[in-house]
């Protein structure tokens, strides 16, 4: 039984790889470099999920493709609700609904911030609804694995309100100038995670060079640009392990400092 499941998964993955390869071949304008994540077939409709990297905590861009009998279709509507099942409780996470990808209209894409990894604590899945052009409603669920990463942290206010601070960019820090951007969300309920756009961020990059010495580098403090996004610049003087502390001030309350620790590549 296990062998047949594994074989099925392998064939599905192989099909996804072929699909991605053929997609990339067919559309020379697309610069997307996607990997297959998972797929599920419901009532002859196959929903495939792709991403630029394996899903991880923090910011992810998800790319969806829907096929029927091997042919890509454009549904009337496609909606999702990422869910974490922790056994005794379930909750969602910050996300947006899928829209046609501007960079490649064969995909629908949406943003999601996974606020915890999958694993012993619980597992992630993405329930979805497809309303076809002939008004048929197809529902299903796509389980996904979410790895842990350094790109998400959270902090609580004195009133125990939690804020999720997501490292939006650079996704792959390299020496030189990088756009520095964060996303901030809060939790109103287990299903509602609205963006926080009126906070102030104070950041400070630092490299600990050992022996009790270290230094910062040139940067521009991120400022709110709307929809929970805060944008600035960071100019890494060298490769190696850097930390960037973030101090969030919301409604006049300065929350405890959180620190992102990550590796910067030379090139």
């Amino acid at each position: 039984m296990r062998l047949s499941i594994s074989m099925g998964r392998m064939m599905a993955m192989a099909a996804l790889v072929l699909a991605v390869a053929s997609c990339n071949t067919n559309n020379s304008n697309s610069e997307l470099d996607l990997i297959p994540v998972n797929s599920v077939t419901v009532q002859e409709y196959t929903v495939s999920l792709f991403a630029e990297k394996e899903p991880e905590t923090g910011f992810n861009m998800l790319y969806w493709q829907i096929e029927k009998d091997g042919d890509r279709i454009e549904p009337q509507q496609f909606s999702i609700t990422p869910m974490m099942d922790m056994g005794e409780m379930m909750h969602s996470t910050p996300y947006t609904e899928p829209q046609t990808a501007e960079e490649d209209d064969r995909y629908l894409k949406n943003m999601v911030v996974f606020i915890m990894p999958g694993g012993a604590m619980g597992s992630w899945s993405v329930p979805f609804e497809i309303r076809t052009q002939d008004d048929q409603l197809i529902t299903g669920e796509l389980p996904i694995n979410v790895d842990s990463s350094w790109k998400l942290t959270s902090v609580r206010s004195e009133s125990d309100k939690i804020y999720f601070i997501t490292w939006y960019s650079p996704q792959n820090p390299v020496s030189g100038n990088n756009e520095l951007a964060f996303m901030v969300h809060t939790r109103e309920s287990m299903m509602s995670f609205p963006p926080v756009s009126d906070a102030e961020l104070l950041v400070y990059p630092y490299m600990d060079m050992g022996g009790g010495s270290g230094h910062s580098t040139d940067f521009t403090n991120p400022v709110a640009t709307g929809n929970g996004m805060y944008e600035g610049d960071i100019n890494y003087s060298m490769s190696g392990v850097w930390t960037t502390s973030v101090e969030l001030t919301v409604n006049g309350e300065t929350l405890p400092e959180v620190v992102f620790e990550y590796s910067v590549q030379a090139k």
């Binding site: 060079m209 050992g210 490769s239 190696g240 590796s263 030379a266």
Partner: peptide
């Protein structure tokens, strides 16, 4: 290249 005596610190590099 900067190689810390502390083995837990990753190598650093500057161009």
């Amino acid at each position: 290249l900067m190689q810390s005596l502390d083995s837990s610190i990753e190598d650093m590099m500057i161009y």
